[in-house]
């Protein structure tokens, strides 16, 4: 009320903000594959609550679209613990590319030391938002996904190949001979 009286906000600003907040929450719920919920059909909001009007059909359609996008982004970027690095492309300069403010914020943190999750946290972005931006940058061929600096290699990467190069070469040659003879 103070903000409205001071002219910083209009009633419409507040309603729009609440509407967006509710929609974001509902769209987030669409991505749940399982979980518990309770629906109280007879419970009405308290009198002092600000209520908003929402078109249910639009929400369902938009929610379904969000789910599809979410699944696609998860396919593209399954692991947010990975880091990002700029692709080495002579002649390509990121300064020549048109990026949104949000994309620039992400770009400023791109470094093999920072995981995607850390970049999201630094920019106060949720998983969907950061995946969307990273996907766009990947599609533009500007960045690639890399293992973060300092992240221990998985056990297999430490075990293989064997340390002795001579033995290792001999082993592969034996495999080649065997496969040829199949």
């Amino acid at each position: 009320m103070l903000l409205i009286n001071a002219g910083y906000l209009s009633q419409q600003d507040i309603l729009s903000g609440i509407q967006q907040y509710v929609l974001d929450t509902v769209y987030q719920l669409f991505t749940w594959s399982d979980g518990f919920f309770r629906f109280d059909a007879s419970v009405l909001p308290p009198d002092d609550a600000i209520t908003i009007r929402l078109d249910l059909e639009n929400i369902i359609m938009e929610g379904s679209r969000h789910v599809q996008e979410w699944e696609q982004l998860q396919d593209e970027i399954p692991n947010l613990s990975m880091a990002l690095n700029f692709v080495e492309r002579p002649g390509a300069n990121i300064r020549d590319v048109n990026l949104t403010v949000e994309e620039w914020k992400v770009v400023s943190y791109i470094n093999p030391k920072n995981s995607i999750k850390q970049i999201a946290k630094a920019n106060k972005m949720n998983d969907l938002e950061i995946r969307r931006i990273v996907y766009g940058l990947l599609q533009a061929g500007l960045i690639e996904i890399v293992r973060p600096d300092g992240m221990p290699l998985p056990r297999h990467a430490q075990q293989v190949p064997p340390v002795d190069r001579k033995k290792q070469t001999s082993l592969v040659n034996r495999l080649i001979d065997r496969v040829r003879s199949l």
């Binding site: 696609q72 396919d75 593209e76 399954p78 692991n79 990975m82 996904i145 890399v146 293992r147 290699l153 998985p154 297999h156 990467a157 293989v160």
Partner: peptide, 17 residues
């Protein structure tokens, strides 16, 4: 094809083999 590319990138990240 898109999924194949995603799988490829994921495996590359798992191990530099």
């Amino acid at each position: 094809f898109r999924e194949a590319r995603g799988i490829l990138q994921t495996f590359r990240a798992y191990a530099p083999t």
